[in-house]
Each structure stands twice: as structure tokens, then as C-alpha cells.
Computed example of a mutant assay.
Amino acid sequence: MGTSSADTARYDRFVADLFGVMAYGELSAFERLSSDARYSPTLHDRAVLGRIAVIEFQHYELVSKKLADMGVDVEDAMLPFQAAVDHFHERTRPADWYESLMKAYVVDTVSADFYQAVARYVDPGTRELIQQIQASEDATAVLRERLRVALADDPRLASRLALWGRRLLGEALTQAQRVGYENAFLTELITAADSGADDAAARERVQRLTAELAENHSKRMVQLGLSG
């Protein structure tokens, strides 16, 4: 990162963009999980999704506070990303409880992979917040176990959920690329963090990240007994 005031202001703007997309992602996850909980087959399952929704809202509050500390209004930071995130959720409406579970799991794990990758290119304070949000594996483990139980109870779900998982990944990567083109904070963060990386090198790293996200997703699907 540069040391001039202009470089610092530029970097802060890209970090605010990162926090903006994180905040809206967490807020949307809270809303989605709260809504999907009503489809739960049991009260226990409703409570499971409700608890995860609460965790997502707590994450939203953490990012909101960080933005406030930077002097950035959280709504202003989220607005540039609202259309892309909403478009993703509109295109991936679950048909039932099982698709809701899979969507929550895929979004949770792919987002975690993405933010862990981004953490390589940011300052220690920003990295600490990302790690704080991604520190708890509880929600991921609960979703994974609930999917395993559902698949064991009804093996016929396997092909449908495998197909649904692939569609979710494709839509998620498409929207991530859209956000990347319209709000180039990721390539700019890479360039700022590595003075030897020009725009072409930064774009190549983003492409490698996309491939890495897809590979990790495939491995997780295989672990669930599904085709990646």
C-alpha cells in the first residue's frame, strides 16, 4: 500500500466497498434465513435456522460498527451492492426446506472462502474483522450435518440437491464477477497490497480465486456424498 494521503484515501474507499458488500450480504442472509425458517419440517429445525439468522445479524452489526468507526454510513456503503445481491437471491429462490438448507450451506461456505482469500490483501485491522466473522464454524457444521441427515433419510434428494448446488455456485460466481466489474475493489486491493501487481496480474489472481472457490465447493459436495 502507498503511504501518501491520496493512496490512503483510495485504499480506505476500497475497504469501505468491501465492508459494504459484506454488510449487505450478512443482512440479506439474516432476512433469508428468517424467512426460510417457516418452511422447517420441525420446530427444532426452525430453531436451527433462527439461531443461524441471529449469527448473521450479529455479523452485520460488527461490519456496521467498523464502517461507523471509519466515518462511513452503512446504508451508503451497502447501496452499490444491493441490486447484485438481490438479483442473486431472486434467481435462487428455494423450492422447499431442503433447497433452503443447501442454499444456506453453499452461500455460507463460498462466502467464507471468498473473504478468507480477500484477507490476504488487507491491513491487519480489516483482516481481524474478517477473521472474527469467519471464526465460528458452528453454523457451517450445523448446516452440513442437517444436510447429511436429510440425505440419509431420503437418498432420492441427492441428484436434486447436487444439481441445485451447482446452480447456486454458478449464480454466486456470476454475481461475484458482476460486482467485481462494477466495483473493482478486489483488483484494486490486490494492486495496493502488492506493488508488483499491475491490473492484468490482479485480474489473473481474481480468476484463480474463482477457480479455487469452484474447486472447494466441489470437494464439499463430494464430502456430502453428492456430485460436485
Rank of each mutant, 00 (worst) to 15 (best):
S227G: 03
S28A: 04
R148C: 07
W164C: 10
T210W: 03
L157M: 11
S227D: 04
E137Q: 15
A53F: 00
D198T: 02
M102H: 02
L27E: 04
T92I: 03
F81Y: 10
M1W: 10
E137T: 13
A202Y: 05
D76W: 09
R144F: 13
A117E: 15
L129H: 09
V179D: 04
M22C: 01
D199A: 12
D12P: 03
M221T: 03
F19K: 08
P124K: 06
R120G: 12
R146A: 08
A68H: 03
P94I: 03
Y98R: 13
V110T: 15
A112F: 12
V118T: 12
Q131D: 14
G170A: 04
T140D: 15
D96S: 10
H217G: 10
V15W: 04
V122A: 14
R208T: 04
Y39C: 07
V106A: 09
Q134V: 15
E215A: 15
A53Q: 00
D7F: 03
R10F: 13
D7G: 02
Y181W: 15
V54R: 05
E75L: 07
D17I: 07
I190Q: 11
V142W: 12
H217N: 10
A172E: 11
T174M: 07
H59N: 05
L157V: 10
R208D: 08
S100T: 01
E145S: 12
A192S: 07
A162T: 04
S4A: 00
S195E: 15
L33Q: 07
S100A: 14
L161A: 11
L143P: 11
T187P: 05
D17A: 13
S218K: 05
V48Y: 02
L209S: 07
W97N: 08
V21L: 08
V106N: 09
Q116M: 14
R144Q: 13
G20K: 06
Y105G: 09
L101T: 10
E137R: 13
R51H: 08
Q175S: 13
R203D: 11
V72G: 07
